[in-house]
Structures are given as C-alpha cells and as structure tokens.
Nucleic acid binder design. Structure first.
Lengths: 235, 235
DNA sequence: CTTTTCACTTGACACTGTCAAGACGATTGC
DNA sequence: GCAATCGTCTTGACAGTGTCAAGTGAAAAG
C-alpha cells in the first residue's frame, strides 16, 4: 500500500505535505458529526477535503477501510480513556465498586466525546472486523482492558459475583447500553445536555451502590456463591 | 394515503388480495436477516416481492416510512414480550429482583428473535422518530412499560435505589447493551449460540444477585439512601 | 536530460432513492 | 351498459453513490 514514513533523507514527501490521508479521516468524522451517518459518503468526504471523488482510493482500498481506520482509532481512544479512569489517582481512593463505576462512566464519556467514532465502532454493516484486522485488534484490546479492570476490581473486593465472565459482560453491557441510549436513544432527544449528564452520573452511582451492597452482604454471609463457580471463560 | 380497510361491502380489494404491502415488509425483514443492513434497498425489496422498483412508493412515501413501520412493529413486539415476562405466572413466584431480571432477559430474547427489527429500532439515521410518529409512539410506550415494571418492582421490594429514574435507565441500558453486544458485538462473533445464551443467563443471574443483595443490605440497615432522593423524573 | 514513480484526476459503470408520467383493469356514477 | 374515475401498479428519467480502468503532470531518481 502506501508508505507513510518520510523519505530516506529528512525531507517530506508530497503526500506528507498535503496530508490528504489525515484530512480525509478528519473530514469523515466531521461529516458524521454534522450531518449524521446517513449523509456519509466517500464522495462528500473527498469534496470536503478538496479533492476528486477517486482520491481517497489512493489511501484506502475501499470505504470500509476508511471507516475501519476510524473504528480502530476509536477503540484505541476508548481503551486509553478506560485505563486512565482505572488508574486515576482520584479514583484510586475509591472502593473497588467505585473504581468500576468510574470506568463505566468513562466509557459513556468517550461515546459523548467521540460520537462519530462510537457510532461506527459497533456497526458490523459498516466495519466488518473480519475485513479490518486493525480495528479487530484494537477492539479485542479494549475488551481485554475491560476484562482486566473487572478482574482486578473483583480481586480488590467484589467477591459476590457468581461468574467473573458474566460480570465483565454485565459491566460492558451496562456502559455500552447507556452510551447508546444517551447518544442515539430516547435519552438524547428530550433531555438537555446537563440533564443527560446527571442521569449518567445517577446510573453510575446506582450501579456502584448495588455493587457495594453486594460486597457488604457477602461480608456478613461469606461463601455465598450463587451457582456454579465460573465453568469457562469467554475470551 | 392508502386505505387499508376492506370495501363498504365485505369483499376484498385488489390490494388486499395481492397483499403487497405486507409482502414488502416481510421481504425487507428477510433481506436484513439474510444479507445484512448494508444490502437493504427498496429496489431489492421490490425485486423480492416480485414487483417493479416503484411499487413500494404506492404504500410508503419513502424508504424511511417503510423502515419506520418495521420499527413500530418492533417496539410493539418488544412491549408485548416485556409485559408477558413481567406478568408471567412462572415469574410471579420470583422475588422482585428476579422478576426484573426476567424482564431484562426478555428484552435480549426479543433482540435475538427479531434481529432485523431490533437493528432498525435504534438507528436514527434510518428511522428518525420525528418523521415516524407511529414508531415514536410505540417507542415511548415501550419506555413507559419499562418504567412501570421497574416502578412496580421497586414498590414490591427494592428500596435501596437512590433514584427510580436512574434504576429505569440502568435496567434499560443493561438490557439494551447486552442485546447489542449479543447481536452485533464481540459476543456474537466468537461464541456459539448456546454459549451466548448461557452468557445472557449468567449476566441476568448476576444482576439479579446484585439487586437481591441490595435488598438484603437495606433490610439490615434501612433508610440507607445514597444521596439526594430523586430530584426530577426524566420522562 | 530522460525515465520512473507518486499522487492524484478523468471517465465510466452499475447501483441506489425518488420524481413524473403512463397504463390498465376494476369500480362507480349515471 | 358504458364512459369516467380510481386504485395499483409500470416505465422512464435523474442525481447521487461506491468502485474499476485508464490517464496526467509534476517531482524524484538515474
């Protein structure tokens, strides 16, 4: 494909100067944020970048590859943000449940901060992970980050869950669902921005309360495992 | 638009005989399920229904209206299913938390049973609720159903939540996120169907355990409300 | 200075949603 | 009974889309 480094000498190639590749990506994101996914088309992106309709094909084999790159970047940013929340000094003082809730909230905040990325990331009809190995790799890394954070949190004081795999899925689902509803669901439409943020905080707080109550109840009656003790991990 | 009733006498109109409208809807759903959202086009739908590309416009003003109808039907089916789960005799014997978990599971089961409907329902770029009053009405009804079920459940024995509105959003988010991940997310790809179902049951069970632990902890230490007592409902 | 390579451009094709107009049997008013 | 109307589609066209194939002109390499 296309070399992205500089030439043998320190000079920049023409492509690096015009920086069309990055401009195309930026134009795509802006287009989605301004006009919505429906209006996203390679030709409009090219138009916005000030080139002809075929220019994007020099950098991306097809439309899916371009979106795949955004998807990949999105997962990278998401992972970053979750790790930041998990390791945050401010959150370090919290209980295990509090830290988990903070990570969940960071997930939703990511969706709000990068709506175009988020809208593409979980849409297999736009970006099939089988066709975009980069996106798949970053997606897996994000998943493993969630898994690791949950695992550490469980070790640090959440012994009540019947299966850690289920708790991972539960945390991801809750965060993901809340992000979806906040971004494109009924919550986005009617409420003003501040009310939505308050709602997210309330949900986070509720979840945290539930987890903490679970911890407390186990401390009173230890060994209360619900059913079977995690038969198999779902990687 | 088009009258859908029968004629003044009991006879059927031509349209009712050919039943093209229903065939178009069915063809759309089949197309999504077989080929994915990307391949969905009015022309292909018309082709599948055995008519020319313009025939759908006799029944639907545009593509969005057709999808909006599917969306509306989806919300109706979802509401039905949740109410069934909430009122199920088998679930009636459960605790409040158990009933709530059963409703959540019914949400995910709906998504698996009607994947084409579900994929359309939460995609504003396909169906903008402002353009489809029917879809909006059924969507609101579904939301209110969730709210009512949560409310009843809280009254029946979940006093620990800091805000009922937050619990409603939490329940919806968890179910919705899980449905998304199961249908189109990382969970769908690698695991076989039975493992996915087991995972859903595990998550449901975990949530139920968390809620029940919360109930228990409150029963030991009543009046333990986290922060402020529900400032405003988000309708 | 010539040749190659890069970074695009031009042109075409099949496909899409949608507008305008037409066709044609069934129903209806008289 | 028969012309007029109506309902239910069809035909044709247009602008927009993603993508293939080929061309172009300036920079880089020799």
């Amino acid at each position: 494909m296309i070399k992205t480094g500089s030439t043998s000498r320190g000079r920049k190639t023409r492509a690096e100067v015009s920086d069309l590749r990055a401009r195309l990506l930026r134009a795509s994101i802006e287009l989605i944020e301004e006009e919505g996914l429906q209006k996203l088309s390679l030709r409009e992106v090219a138009r916005r970048a000030g080139v002809t309709h075929q220019a994007p094909y020099h950098y991306f084999p097809d439309r899916e590859a371009l979106l795949g790159e955004i998807c990949e970047e999105g997962f990278r940013l998401l992972t970053e943000r979750m790790e930041l929340a998990a390791g945050d000094q401010h959150n370090a003082k919290l209980s295990a449940a509090g830290r988990l809730a903070a990570v969940g909230q960071s997930y939703v905040e990511f969706a709000c901060a990068y709506p175009a990325h988020f809208r593409i990331m979980f849409r297999p009809e736009l970006v099939d992970h089988d066709h975009c190995p980069g996106a798949k790799a970053e997606g897996d890394r994000a998943f493993q980050t969630v898994a690791r954070i949950v695992h550490e949190t469980v070790k640090a004081g959440l012994p009540a869950v019947p299966s850690e795999a289920a708790l991972i899925t539960l945390c991801w689902s809750l965060s993901h669902g809340l992000a979806c509803l906040v971004l494109d669901g009924p919550l986005a439409k009617k409420l003003p921005q501040t009310a939505v943020e308050q709602q997210v905080r309330d949900v986070t707080k509720t979840m945290r309360a539930l987890l903490e109550a679970s911890v407390a109840s186990v401390q009173k009656a230890p060994k209360r495992v619900l059913k079977k003790p995690t038969p198999k991990r779902a990687t």
